[in-house]
Design a protein around this nucleic acid. Structure first.
Length: 441
RNA sequence: GUGAGCGUAGCUCAGAUGGUUAGAGCAUUAGACUGUGGCUCUAAGGGUCGCGGGUUCGAAUCCCGUCGCUCACCCCA
């Protein structure tokens, strides 16, 4: 202990690197995104599921893939009191599938649609739109292989972005084939790339043996030039995958979702098959994806479940909000028109002896579902009025010694500065009458 | 893990070539006929100049280290 009593202990705590606090004034956009997401998901028949934020480490190794960066170096892993290994979830697809299998949900109904909203954890160096604790909202449509289902998921994401007024996003899609055709393509690609081995960047040279597909995604100019001349996976898809891709693309057109086929689009997670897609926003810079998803027909069987396919996506919420802010600051007309909740009535008390009655009134209003607040700091009437004004309340109730003696209150309508007197007993009735027309909407 | 840039009041930032008590705007609080808002005016509070060391008569300003933040790379939502 410090014996020097004069020395105050200095405050030194900080939110850990890569995490952020969403302060009250920042909440509006989050709310909007979350509410729109929920509505849209539920509109399309998806049900919310919440899984733990941590899971058995093996779940992620099994599903995401042992050789991926996520598993190799980005997971928050620790051991709990027993000798089992626990990992903070780096994504939510695997946990949702785990729940689906654990409760054998496929036995009651094979096809089920889930959505989730929540934090995810990845130990990476933070960067614009990328954090260590970040939030995703996503869907998983489990138990069907219909390509139209792939399209449904894309359309849901697109509609969410439309409804939050996020202009300027791009849908990129590709097919990465299945366990039948992908190995064939991988070998051909590898062969062809080996011819150019010395021209590839160092990293890509090592990728030749580890993950050939990733080379197609490399941003190095030389690698780009080389991969430009490489064959496209689209030319090597098996008939089944070809048909699948065709249906996806045609029906995207039919329902009016513009997209770009990006033959170089690959995914970082092992479990994808056939359709993969990504929605990006150009305002974001280097890390520009706001949504990523695709089909994973082997994940469930790989995890030891029945062999059924599924599709899903995850929307990166901070990336989306960042993009939304960029869009909003550009269009001057749509100034930060996002409402934060505030009470609509403020009660100004004057003098200690009136506080009790004010507090009684406050509770009366609140019990009737009217939003109201009052002063707990013992400040002057003027200061209380200032607070009321800052809060943007519509009405102020003033109750001082005079009113107390008469058994009434003054109600000030802030917009017009008009004041009226009311018996204390009539206050609630007065506000309820005011409320009812708007409530009936 | 690698590289670059930045680090001055709650916030946004000024503070050339080192020189007496570190500034502004916004925000906060209090006043302007002592029971009342928005505008205006006045005043006040608030800063170990990220931290540690060095150079110097003297450093927010130069050098080194360190921590933190940001952006980019790898990878990814």
């Amino acid at each position: 202990m410090n014996t020097n009593t004069e020395k105050k202990t200095e405050y030194t705590f900080k939110a850990p690197r890569g995490t952020e606090d969403i302060l009250p004034e920042k909440w509006a956009l989050w709310r909007r995104l979350e509410e729109v997401g929920r509505q849209e998901f539920e509109l399309c028949g998806y049900y919310e599921i919440r899984t733990p934020v941590f899971e058995d480490t093996r779940l992620f190794i099994r599903s995401i893939g042992e050789a991926t960066d996520i598993v190799e170096k980005e997971m928050y892993t620790f051991s709990d009191s027993e000798d089992s290994s626990i990992t903070m979830r780096p994504e939510s697809t695997a946990p949702v599938m785990r729940a689906y299998l654990e409760y054998e949900l496929y036995k009651t109904k094979k096809f089920q649609k889930f959505y989730y909203i929540g934090p995810q954890f990845r130990k990476e160096r933070p960067q614009a739109g990328r954090l260590r604790q970040f939030h995703q909202m996503g869907i998983e449509a489990v138990g069907a292989s219909d390509p139209l289902l792939d399209v449904e998921t894309i359309s849901i994401a697109a509609r969410i972005f439309d409804r939050i007024d996020l202009n300027g996003y791009k849908v990129k899609i590709n097919s990465i084939g299945c366990e039948k055709c992908r190995p064939v393509f991988r070998n051909i690609l590898k062969e062809k790339l080996c011819e150019h081995e010395k021209s590839l960047c160092e990293l890509c040279q090592s990728r030749l043996n580890r993950n050939v597909f990733r080379i197609l995604d490399c941003k190095n100019e030389k690698c780009k030039a080389i991969s430009h001349h490489m064959p496209s996976i689209n030319d090597y898809l098996c008939v089944e995958c070809q048909v699948h891709a065709k249906v996806v693309r045609e029906s995207l057109l039919e329902i009016g979702i513009p997209y770009i086929v990006d033959a170089h689009l690959v995914r970082g997670l092992d479990y994808y098959t056939k359709t993969v897609y990504e929605i990006t926003h150009s305002s974001l810079g280097a890390r520009d994806a706001i949504c990523a998803g695709g089909r994973y027909d082997n994940l469930i069987s790989d995890m030891g479940g029945p062999s059924i396919g599924s599709v899903g996506f995850a929307i990166g919420m901070e990336a989306t909000i960042l993009a939304l802010k960029n869009v909003m600051s550009k269009s001057k007309t749509v100034s930060q028109e996002v409402s934060t909740p505030a009470p609509s009535i403020y009660i100004v008390s004057i003098g200690e002896e009136t506080k009790k009655q004010c507090f009684y009134l406050l509770n009366l209003l609140r019990k009737s579902n009217l939003s109201a607040d009052f002063d707990y700091e013992g400040r002057s009437p003027k200061a209380q009025m200032r607070t009321a004004n800052k809060l943007g309340v519509k009405y102020v109730i003033v109750l001082g010694p005079d009113e107390l003696a008469r058994g009434d209150v003054k109600i000030k309508i802030m917009e017009t500065s008009e004041e009226i007197s009311l018996k204390q007993n009539d206050v609630l009735k007065w506000f309820l009458n005011k409320q009812s027309p708007s409530v009936s909407l």
